[in-house]
């Protein structure tokens, strides 16, 4: 039993990392209509930007900020240089998926050439552990949970209380109508890529902080978990992604305790398939956005 309680504790950390990543991913899709398969490549690149700072002697917290800025700027450029031009050209959704996957491979392999295939880790203070019954977490892990909570509240506040958030929601619902109502949609979309890119960068760095070691090859694994969480909650829905992250995070950790850590992603995938088959619009979908045509 204690094994499972401990796993539940690790699940809290996992789900925090997934939530940060999945909210960014799902907002990109929901607001700008791009399924950005390069998301995980940007994420792992941010991990290594933070790693470079960290190993140059910078504290992990400052490196985290560097990773966030890198993720934001890189995502912004990715959209400006690649995705928006293709969208303006009238490229189909499927075409966009192919473009983003090709981009993902390029980024990942350039990073591989620069950073090498080795397993590495951050230099961070161990800071002792915190116990709560059978749950044992490091101080860093508790801080990761804290970061996720703060970010989720910030996203909630942004979407609910600010004019920018309302403009984002309007753009997501109907970009043409939003533009006609005087919302500068292309500026809104720029900001969305900056914000979601920052989330992507932060998610990467905290994922690196939460694992003993990481390598460039971790990217695809991140992507599957993120997609599973986003689709589970209803693609394009930030709150859905949070819910999806909670479920996926706990399920993967508990299954790792029950079966084997090798199959973490398989569990995520099984959930994904079940959702896609039984409730393709996701748990929290407002409209039948995911339902098939015909």
């Amino acid at each position: 039993m204690d094994l499972y309680i401990a796993a539940f504790g690790f699940g809290l950390v996992s789900l925090s990392v997934i939530a940060i990543a999945a909210v960014g991913f799902t907002m990109q899709f929901g607001i700008t209509n791009v399924i950005n398969l390069a998301y995980s490549s940007v994420m792992i690149s941010s991990v290594y930007v933070a790693y470079a700072f960290n190993h140059a002697g910078v504290s992990i917290w400052l490196a985290l900020i560097a990773g966030a800025i890198f993720g934001a700027v890189f995502s912004f450029l990715l959209n400006r240089v690649l995705y928006t031009p293709f969208q303006r050209k009238g490229t189909s959704l499927l075409g966009m998926v192919i473009v983003s996957l090709a981009t993902s491979l390029m980024i990942q392999n350039v990073l591989l050439a620069i950073a090498g295939p080795y397993n590495v880790s951050y230099v961070q203070p161990s800071g002792g552990t915190i116990r709560l019954g059978a749950i044992v977490l490091t101080v860093v892990q508790v801080l990761v949970i804290g970061i996720a909570v703060v970010l989720m509240l910030a996203i909630h506040a942004l979407l609910t209380f600010t004019r920018l958030g309302k403009a984002m929601r309007a753009t997501a619902a109907n970009p043409t109508l939003a533009r006609n109502c005087g919302i500068p949609t292309s500026r809104v979309i720029d900001v969305v890529w900056l914000i979601t890119g920052a989330l992507c960068g932060i998610a990467g760095v905290v994922a690196g902080m939460n694992s003993d070691t990481f390598a460039v090859g971790n990217g695809p694994g991140y992507l599957i978990t993120i997609i599973a969480a986003a689709v589970l909650g209803g693609a394009g829905q930030p709150y859905g992604a949070m819910l999806g992250a909670v479920l996926i995070g706990e399920m993967t950790e508990l299954s790792a305790a029950a079966i084997s850590a090798d199959y973490k992603e398989v569990v995520a995938f099984a959930v994904l398939v079940l959702v896609m088959v039984l409730r393709p619009q996701g748990l929290l979908a407002k409209r039948g956005a995911l339902a098939a045509a015909g």
């Binding site: 399924i35 398969l37 959704l93 499927l94 966009m96 998926v97 996957l101 695809p220 694994g221 992507l223 599957i224 997609i227 599973a228 689709v231 693609a235 992603e265 995938f269 994904l272 398939v273 896609m276 088959v277 393709p280 995911l290 339902a291 098939a292 045509a293």
Partner: peptide
Amino acid sequence: RLRSDYQAIALLVLSV
């Protein structure tokens, strides 16, 4: 039942 872009993603995930 899936929309074609989700089919693509599901198939990608399946491959991995």
